[in-house]
Design a protein around this nucleic acid. Structure first.
Length: 370
RNA sequence: GUGGAUGUAGCGUAGUUGGUUAGCGCGUCAGAUUGUGACUCUGGAGAUCGUGGGUUCGAGUCCCAUCUUCCACC
């Protein structure tokens, strides 16, 4: 019996957005799904119980970070990532491809792999597709990502082409090195902002996609319209019978726009990062809790929100916590922000079910301040 | 009462032999954050330099008076 499969339950007639169930060894995931990010084997500020409370179905963790600290051997010895961090639902690990480019001091990219310096201590290290697979195999996540090269916005056509070709070659090596049938390998589509390169990348990596494919290299600083345009272009070209994962997105508006373009899975650090800096999502836009106008606002972040934070705390209290730099403020805001995106995804599911996601988007964005 | 010290933004302070628009930290106000280096980054507002007079081309800086606070002595 296959350990992974994807069942499509409904396709929105208006947008093409899908509702489905992704079966994995650690349980089913209803899509569309928003995945909170837990880089260092913890979603910052939330206990696993909190994640359950906000209805998180799957979380993300990170190969690059866990490789550097504590080391994949430690996680393996602990019995795998699920046991190590006490989270028994599905986990997706990012490959470290992005981090090697965004965090580490990059020394050299060759066809063989990437030489980089650890952001922790400057140690020179070498990452290859094979090493990346070995680390993710040891971590024991359910979904593992291919080691890719995420080219930056603004690079030349020729460089973007070279990066996508290398990504495909590395994918082939990932595929050959990966043996664990309890882990699904997601290929990643690159190609920067050139449509023909995107299409080419999709066609090259699709044969390696068994139950899931990802779009990388977007939401890296380009205008949103550029991302939406690429996503629209790709929408009818993906393999149909598997989930599509848009990496690193997003904000509430990006979630809606992404799902409306046939994306099934997204992840983003935004809800937890802005929470740590004192900002909350709301139906009408961001709430910056630092602002003085909340000093005596004894109402919840959102009256109608059912999250733990909104049910028990006022904006005045959150304002106080944020102003004092108290960690509870970051925790409560993280809970709310993740709940907000997951709850929004639930509303989107309803709209897909009713074949009216585009109407829903227009209604939603009309009152949403970007 | 006498002698000494002190006074610069809400708080703490820098300011050279007198020399452009009085600098900094905290606080304050507002923005940013998208496959995560938690507690970050960017920007704004806020000072008739205790008060009054004098010297000087020019005074936070020098002189006189006065007030505040603190210390010591009677």
């Amino acid at each position: 019996m296959e350990k992974f499969s994807y069942e499509i339950k409904h396709i929105c007639k208006q947008s093409g957005a899908r509702i489905g169930v992704f079966h994995t060894p650690h349980g089913d995931i209803e899509t569309p799904v928003f995945m909170p990010v837990g880089t260092l084997a913890t979603v910052k500020g939330l206990r696993p119980e909190d994640l359950e409370d906000v209805n998180a179905q799957i979380i993300l963790s990170n190969t690059y970070h866990l490789f550097l600290r504590p080391g994949e051997d430690v996680v393996k010895q602990a019995g795998g990532l699920h046991k190590f961090m006490n989270w028994n639902k599905p986990i997706l690990t990012d490959s470290g491809g992005f981090q090697v480019f965004s965090l580490a001091k990059l020394n050299k990219i060759t066809d063989d792999g990437v030489e980089f310096q650890s952001h922790l201590n400057g140690e020179r290290l070498f990452m290859t597709p094979e090493k990346c697979m070995q680390i993710q195999n040891d971590l024991g996540s359910d979904i593992i990502m291919a080691f890719d090269e995420c080219s930056k916005p603004g690079v030349s056509y020729d460089y973007a082409k070279k990066a996508l070709e290398r990504t495909t070659k590395w994918l082939d090596r990932c595929y050959k090195a990966h043996k664990n049938e309890n882990q699904m390998l997601f290929p990643i589509i690159q190609g920067n902002f050139f449509k023909d390169l995107r299409e080419r990348s999709l066609n090259e990596v699709a044969p390696y996609a068994k139950c899931g494919i990802a779009v990388g290299g977007l939401s890296v600083g380009e205008p949103k319209e550029v991302m939406y345009d690429i996503l629209s272009f790709l929408q009818d070209k993906y393999p149909q019978n598997m989930p599509r994962y848009l990496m690193g997105v997003g904000s509430p508006d990006c979630l809606i726009e992404g799902y409306a373009r046939g994306i099934d899975m997204m992840d983003c650090v935004l809800p937890t990062r802005i929470a740590r800096n004192g900002t909350a999502f709301s139906r009408y836009g961001k709430i910056v809790l630092k602002n003085a106008k909340y000093k005596r606002d004894f109402t919840p972040l959102e009256q109608e929100c059912n999250c733990y934070t909104c049910k028990n705390y006022t904006k005045a209290y959150l304002h106080h916590l944020v102003k004092c730099g108290e960690m509870l403020g970051a925790e409560l805001l993280s809970i709310h922000n993740i709940y907000h995106l997951i709850n929004l995804t639930d509303k989107i599911k309803e709209a897909i079910m009713q074949d009216r996601l585009l109407d829903f988007r227009d209604e939603y964005l009309k009152d949403y301040k970007l």
